[in-house]
């Protein structure tokens, strides 16, 4: 009997609900923390970022038009999918971050719990961030949180799954769509999670993942005028200044690493605008 041929996996991008190779045809090698070969990963280019932004833009209106309750269900379903593949996630977290199996399992649990937490917030955020304002006249005056639109995220470099989950699902929960540049050296856990969105009823384009060299593609994302918000959590200070400066040309909201606190509402609050509407008080 012949030996079975090994089935190796190609790690690809996630753009508009599909898993393409990089438009440039390039890939790069990712190793475990210990330095052994882990995977060949697509090395995204500027044009992949552009395509991802187009996908995110066209998905945003649809995602926001879904009821908040429904968005919560979709995000919760991702937690269900992740739960059933938690061992695979934990294995990748352990290899990528060089952690013990038990530690990795704990981190996966925290990540999944965090997704559930965000799922719960979708239809509650308006009650917390919104308000009914007193005005002098026969009107209701409401302030309601609305999404910024398309949010670009440079995900945390070290925390391959937890950091990714915190940075990505907060803006998605409040109705944004996201283009995320995954951790350059440890992208595989986030790619796995991206694959799970395909079976969690995420509309195409809500989450787009580009893997590759952060230094090469982050400037394109930061300067892209059709991106409304930028999370620079995964970028070191000097480079982050540079990116924030180029983001300023198109007046994006920019979230810096030191402003980040995943256990508060800060992540959910980071990429919302306030829309204030007047409405006559009927008889």
């Amino acid at each position: 009997m012949s030996e079975r041929q090994e089935v190796r996996k190609t790690y690809k991008l996630l753009i508009n609900g599909a898993f393409p190779r990089s438009e440039s045809g390039r890939s790069y090698e990712v190793t475990s923390k210990k330095g052994t070969f882990l995977a060949n990963v697509a090395q995204g280019s500027r044009k992949d970022v552009r395509d991802a932004v187009v996908a995110a833009r066209s998905a945003q209106a649809k995602w926001w038009a879904q009821s908040a309750y429904n968005r919560g269900q979709v995000i919760y379903r991702l937690a269900e999918m992740a739960e059933s593949r938690r061992d695979e996630l934990a294995e990748h977290v352990a290899l990528a971050e060089g952690r013990s199996a038990k530690d990795a399992q704990t981190r996966v649990s925290r990540s999944i719990d965090r997704i559930v937490w965000y799922a719960g917030w979708t239809d509650k955020i308006a009650q917390v961030l919104g308000s009914s304002n007193p005005v002098a006249g026969p009107f209701f005056n409401f302030s309601v949180p609305v999404p910024s639109g398309v949010v670009g995220v440079v995900a945390a470099q070290d925390s391959s799954l937890e950091g990714f989950v915190n940075a990505v699902f907060a803006p998605i929960a409040v109705g944004n769509t996201v283009v995320v540049i995954a951790s350059e050296l440890r992208p595989t856990p986030s790619i796995l999670l991206g694959e799970m969105t395909a079976t969690a009823d995420f509309p195409a384009g809500v989450l787009n993942i580009v893997t590759g060299y952060t230094g090469e593609i982050a400037p394109t994302l930061a300067a892209h005028e059709d991106v409304d918000g930028l999370d620079l959590g995964g970028v070191a200070n000097g480079f982050a200044d540079e990116l924030a400066t180029s983001a300023a040309a198109s007046i994006k909201r920019v979230l810096r690493a030191h402003e980040y606190d995943a256990t508060s509402l800060r992540g959910l609050r980071a990429f919302v605008e306030t829309s204030t509407v007047w409405h006559t008080i009927g008889q």
Binding site: R50, A223, E225, S246, A249, S250
Partner: peptide
């Protein structure tokens, strides 16, 4: 400009 542009320009 060197940066991608908003379609609604």
């Amino acid at each position: 400009r060197g940066a991608y542009v908003r379609p609604d320009e």
